[in-house]
Design a protein around this nucleic acid. Sequence first.
DNA 1: ATCAGTTCAAGTCAATTGCACCTTTACTCG
DNA 2: CGAGTAAAGGTGCAATTGACTTGAACTGAT
Lengths: 229, 229
Amino acid sequence: MNSQAPTLAVSTVIFALRATDSDEATPGTLWLPLVRRIREPFEGRWALPGGPIGGDESLADAAARNLLETTSLTSRYLEQLYAFGTVDRSPSQRVVSIVYWALVRPDEAERAAESENVRWFAADDLPSLAFDHNTIVEYALWRLRNKMEYSRIAHAFLGERFTLTQLREVYEAVLRKPLDPANFRRQIESTKSVVATDERLAGGRHRPPRLYRYNESFDLADNGPLPVL
Amino acid sequence: MNSQAPTLAVSTVIFALRATDSDEATPGTLWLPLVRRIREPFEGRWALPGGPIGGDESLADAAARNLLETTSLTSRYLEQLYAFGTVDRSPSQRVVSIVYWALVRPDEAERAAESENVRWFAADDLPSLAFDHNTIVEYALWRLRNKMEYSRIAHAFLGERFTLTQLREVYEAVLRKPLDPANFRRQIESTKSVVATDERLAGGRHRPPRLYRYNESFDLADNGPLPVL
DNA sequence: ATCAGTTCAAGTCAATTGCACCTTTACTCG
DNA sequence: CGAGTAAAGGTGCAATTGACTTGAACTGAT
């Protein structure tokens, strides 16, 4: 029996929407940045960004800091996913990982410049990752898709102003199914989660769509009485 | 800056339904067992049962073991709630608590004999607890009530066989609102989550209700692709 | 043995919601 | 100015929900 105290760490699954490189017309697919491990175990393999928890920071703070340090990313949406702690998830050493998931907007995503040790991957087409990180990403994907249907987190993928078509395309990319534009419009408008501005987006070869913004006084996440992160 | 590694612990919020002592007719209210702290900090105050994680057990195993050791309770339903880790939640020492929540059936609940250091409390009427445990219970209550509406966890409060009225009383006790018996019956039957047996419950001064059992091939919790606990 | 009381069980109906499809409007580009 | 395109708004059907009603089955008391 190994009576050594487990090591505690935080990791983060980051999601962003990016246009598929080859085809500009496709609505966009779900991507996530991974970092290459530079030491054993799993040296050279891709893994979720993460690290230890500082003595003077909360768990969410630690997740955000590790995110910034390893990928230069910041996020407007960060939520705890799950604590993973089976005995065999890391060889030789017992590690308990408290995993967060984050949504970043396109402008924020630009900061995660690809390098030798940071690369974006399509969420549906990942390589074999270090530790149990494939399992973790799968669970995060399930949570994202689940939460997409009963909350308004989709907004965290977009910038300040957006059209309803752009918002719908976020849903379509994450849920991987087409949505009826008319019904989508009605549903979103009925929730009052967005506010119409009097601006419009010109440039397309069609009627210019109205730009919307978030309704600040609207709970996007629906996480109950959780202590503020 | 305190660079000491945080201490890791598991705690569990346990829910059970018990008839209100004074009035046998009331459908039952939500209760949870607490243990009295026998050392500083918060010596003498009531707290959630919990303890350290052994080197050879998973997080859920640790929660179940601590549950058994401190309250003699076992549970058929145990799910991770949240990891709490703000810096100031415990004085003098940095503690990260991975909290589980459990549902126990009436026959299981009997095992938690009240003693000097274990006592049942009504969920809506708790004293001031140790650490941030009041916050934790509040969040667990929110999760329970939330999950009650989209999953079939209510069954975890009942024994092998039960009437639809008993099942409805579970919902009424947890959600704190009366439900129409006829509509409730229709909804439950449409989900196929229960199977009618040909037994009936005799003894009441009325038409004997049919007994039902769980549908084993039905996912009660809807927790996605989480690794099996 | 009959009756009163209680609860199970099944059915009705109106209101609401969700979803598929259709029409009109307003703009850009050639 | 006309063709093309997507926004914006509307219509109707099907499924679901909630309030209510009715009849059946059983126990315990008279």
